[in-house]
């Protein structure tokens, strides 16, 4: 009886569990005399660069007197499109800087910021800026929603490694 009830429910729920957007960001190992983990902003934009939604901002949250926020403007494209309008830290968005390696972020399409994302063309944007280092910005174009699983990637050259985007319907 219980199983019989659950099965139709699962079927009903299936379209609502529509999908997932997974972002992989590789922070490369750099051979430099003075290394600090990069500040990274990850967001979605329209093809005309209009900001749609922030996915994550990694910066130095722990410095006293919020001193880490002083350098957020070095993520200069993100600062222009979104950051300067925010009062950091923002729950669900702010995070500590990440170590060298690949970091995966998953976003459920039934929840903000993906819920309510209108069908259309978008770009995933990843911007990284490093203290006493450089800055790099990568874009990965995609269309939303997707019919089947899709993936795309962009390759950084200096401050970022591979950025991957995986979409599941």
């Amino acid at each position: 009886m219980r199983k019989a009830l659950l099965l139709p429910l699962a079927l009903l729920a299936a379209p609502a569990l529509a999908g997932e957007l997974e972002v992989g960001v590789q922070i490369p190992r750099l051979n430099v005399a003075e290394y600090h983990r990069p500040y990274v902003a990850i967001w979605l934009e329209r093809p005309d660069q209009q900001h749609v939604a922030d996915l994550a901002v990694w910066y130095d949250l722990k410095l006293k007197d919020d001193e880490g926020e002083k350098w957020l403007k070095d993520l200069r494209q993100w600062w222009r499109r979104s950051g300067r309008q925010l009062d950091m830290p923002v729950d669900g968005l702010s995070g500590a800087t990440r170590a060298v390696g690949t970091h995966q972020l998953k976003f459920d399409s039934t929840r903000p910021p993906l819920a309510g994302l209108e069908p259309g063309d978008y770009r995933l944007v990843v911007e990284a800026a490093r203290e006493v280092g450089g800055r790099e910005l990568l874009r990965v174009p995609f269309s939303w929603p997707v019919d089947g699983p899709q993936s795309a990637q962009a390759q950084g050259e200096t401050e970022l490694g591979t950025v991957t985007l995986t979409l599941t319907p």
Partner: peptide, 8 residues
């Protein structure tokens, strides 16, 4: 000319 942070 463009600044972030709490105490610029």
């Amino acid at each position: 000319t463009v600044l972030s942070g709490e105490d610029p």
